[in-house]
Amino acid sequence: MESRSANGLMGKVLNLSFNGWLMIVVLVIFAFAPVLTEVFNQPFYLDVATRLVILAIAAVSLNLILGFGGMISFGHAAFLGLGAYSVGIPFYYDIYNGWLHFALAIVVSAVFAVITGAICLRTRGVYFIMITMAFGQMVYFAGVSAEEYGADDGLSIYVRSNFNGVLNFDDDTSLYYICFVSLLVALYIVHRIVNSRFGMAVRGAKGNEERMRAVGFNVYIYRLTCYAIAGAMCGFAGALLANFTDFISPEMIDWTRSGELMFMVILGGSGTLFGPFLGAAAFVGLDVFLSQYWVHWRLIFGILLVLTVLFAKGGITGVVANLESMLRRTRGRGSSAAKADGEGPDG
């Protein structure tokens, strides 16, 4: 991106890759989702879109550590749960202040990430996967055993987070836009982070940890910070989710949920800015459509994941990029290699 900044905005738009166009189209569609569902009189799909956008924020946060940092966490749903309970538990005590709910969600998630990350990040590979999953399950069982807050059955939230009239969580369209703008902000934050010095340190450690140490980086401390940022972001998504579903339960923390988030990241294209959003869209979209036709529709997910990993490692984003370079090669115009060079992780 940076290498082309000299060309100005026009140059950027004209030079846009297929993935760039895809991003714009998807963003425009989602920006008008409430209008579209209104026009076609399908309010159900606004609900779908809201859930999708919230899960996309969680997937974007997971991608920060998994895609850019190479930290394959299998316990990311824990943060979703911590964020959700940060809304549910204060509600239970008649505290409806939204600022407090969301501050709590972010702080609790970040603190949990720092404490567990400090331990997890001492391990590598499959051990890291297992230990993050173990910490996730600990949160899950804490939820299950919290009798006061509904244990297994969960807790219904009758009053959504109250922002003293600044933000309206009660109106569906308003809530959707709050979630959508949050997603945009999350994407922008990740975009800034991964291209910053900090981001380069984290991405370098994914590429070659030993080399990064030899060159003078304290890899551990940067990874831990990255883990905490991702955790806080996912906690925020969890607080949105609790408001949207009006309900919290340990089920939202279960390891299968973490697996779903991973699925979104991989399906969309891990290590790309926009991939997790596409992955979340594909996931929720399939979820909604397939479940209408077939009881065992989840089987399709498994097959899709296998196919993605085997034949399309870059996920949707990777497939689109390959398609583009194939087209450009056959038409023999422009050097796609030179373009790819300038695009960095946003491609």
Binding site: M1, E2, S3, S5, R192, I193, N195, S196, R197, F198, G199, M200, A201, G204, M212, V215, G216, F217, Y222, T225, G344
Partner: peptide, 22 residues
């Protein structure tokens, strides 16, 4: 090479400014 330079220019807790334009 820029990473090697960066490692020796103080801490890398700089989250906003793009490193490629630094």
């Amino acid at each position: 090479v820029a990473l090697a330079v960066q490692a020796h220019r103080g801490h890398s807790f700089r989250f906003w400014h793009p490193a490629a334009a630094d």
